[in-house]
Design a protein around this nucleic acid. Structure first.
Lengths: 313, 313
DNA sequence: GTAGAAATGGACGATTTGAACGAATTATGT
DNA sequence: ACATAATTCGTTCAAATCGTCCATTTCTAC
């Protein structure tokens, strides 16, 4: 059973354009068979032989190597979710990275990717883990990979300006869940905030210190686990008092915050999804701009191709 | 993710002419692969490797997708340690990154950087934290930054080959210290291993499962904290049995492993520093090569500019 | 200081590449 | 089976890169 690949798959795997591949096929450098309708199909053997002959590097071997995965481009969110989930379980970091970055480069925001792909994938993984369908190390390894991906995405979004609003946050004591926390930091940075995660399992007192020290515009608390509800509520209330005292908006979220618990809390916003968080953060920032309208140069990338030293000629 | 660059991109990034780059490729100073049509493609890893060897300055790192501000000023190790420590305490992520990447591009290995700069910096931070000189959130924030830096370094070292030996590892239950673990993964990858961290606070049983599933050549255990010594010893003994049963070398290290505890443990190696770990891993790999001497093409530079296909006509 | 060697940067025509386009084919869901 | 979305086809064209040659700069040794 010879495995057949499309030009797109191979093009992505060796990082050249489809045009080049078509040309190489036409020139006979790479043998291709045709479907009845004239579409090219490349046999894996032929591709590998061609690569060896031409000395090219297989940039993403996972695209050609995985037997179970057809490797279609993942510009569609729906399929991406299951693919990422399965790759996470299998510990295939490269495959995960490929899908996620395909989505990002296809124009989806980090916020969307987190909400619709990563969060749901990890939700699935969590369920299977609870049912005992998944060995622990697979779940842990998946988390490690997820954190790496979030970190790489964080490097991909543009670095915030020095006059951008500041946000800090983390998780409270006995809550070691890092993934939601990293997602929040990523999404806020994508929106242009200078977001800094303080980490996980933080005593509430030290968060208060951080708020007093750095006077952020926004404080987020990701709450995935609560040890003792009364203690949590008491400590949270104190922290909330500190924050409002310094003009800091407090955003909370996380699956541990049931409606019952939320009823006893005061906050600036509660967010179910990262999209909600993004919306709130945006409105907060725009309010501030209206109140204090100085430079709001978005300046995404206006013609960064200028020759560096003007006087070099 | 094996990033490929064109000669123009690299030329602009290090501010030399394309002609020079082409010449360096021809001379074998810089490894380049070719497209089927003969255009050069440079792997980011190789470019960084070349920069370190040749002492070139990276003028515009953002063109290579690297964090900006890197490669500007070479710093001496001695001062770097205190600078990094202070920047970590201040939460100045960019400053930390600049120093660390400067060191890396100046030719220092990730292993050295971890041992002499990061580890000592965090040692200092730990001491101050225990004395109460440091608020908790600063210590936590420093850890977050450290993890991010290690992750970025991990992306900068050359990607391991698919036939490289496999290493896995992590920390055991009740040991949440991620930094040493990430350092180990980084150093092993720098040595060419396919190292994968399974995460922290892992039950010993699931590590055993992972060993059985992926049959690594090396298993590392970073032990920064032990809850109950007898439990630890019992569980470790079992895990060590599993590992030796599958031909897996076990490397242990960490400040919680006192001489007294070590006396009651069996292991392939105990490492005080990452340099020790690197030395052991290297000897392990070279032993395997001797025993099974197939392709060991280091291929440093002997005329790697060969035109690809000999028999393509 | 000067001559020679070595390295650099720029310029040239020829070739390769990647992106675009409408039309046709394939995949997917009901 | 059919409708619709997604992919691939063949083609064209501007931009990028190739190899090569040469003028200029930098280095080295006398």
């Amino acid at each position: 059973m010879q495995k057949l690949l499309t030009t797109k798959q191979v093009a992505q795997a060796i990082k050249v354009s489809e045009s080049s591949l078509k040309r190489w096929c036409y020139q006979g450098l790479l043998t291709a068979i045709r479907t009845a309708g004239g579409h090219r199909r490349l046999a894996l053997d032929d591709v590998l032989h061609f690569l060896r002959k031409s000395g090219q590097k297989l940039v993403r071997p996972e695209l050609l190597g995985l037997p179970s995965n057809t490797g279609q481009a993942a510009v569609v969110m729906g399929r991406a979710r299951e693919k990422v989930r399965d790759a996470l379980i299998a510990g295939d970091e490269d495959q995960c990275r490929r899908i996620v970055f395909d989505l990002y480069l296809a124009g989806h925001s980090a916020c969307e990717i987190c909400d619709h792909v990563l969060a749901t994938a990890f939700h699935d993984i969590g369920l299977r883990w609870e049912c005992g369908e998944l060995t622990i190390y697979r779940e842990r390894r998946a988390c490690e990979i997820g954190l790496k991906l979030l970190q790489e995405l964080r490097m991909a979004v543009r670095t915030p300006l020095t006059d951008a609003p500041v946000a800090i946050g983390g998780t409270l004591s006995c809550d070691p869940y890092r993934l939601p926390n990293s997602m929040i930091e990523l999404v806020l940075r994508e929106l242009g905030w200078r977001a800094t995660s303080l980490g996980t399992s933080l005593p509430t007192a030290t968060i208060g210190e951080a708020v007093r020290d750095s006077r952020p515009r926004l404080l987020w608390l990701s709450v995935s686990h609560i040890e003792s509800v009364p203690t949590f509520l008491a400590e949270y209330a104190h922290l909330h008092g500190v924050a409002t005292g310094t003009g800091t908006a407090v955003v909370v979220g996380g699956r541990a915050l049931t409606a019952e618990i939320r009823r006893q809390m005061a906050y600036s916003a509660y967010c179910d999804t990262l999209r909600h968080l993004a919306a709130f953060a945006s409105s907060l920032a725009s309010m501030d701009v209206e109140r204090n309208p100085h430079n709001k140069s978005d300046g995404a990338n206006p013609r960064s191709e200028c020759r560096p030293g003007g006087d070099a000629n």
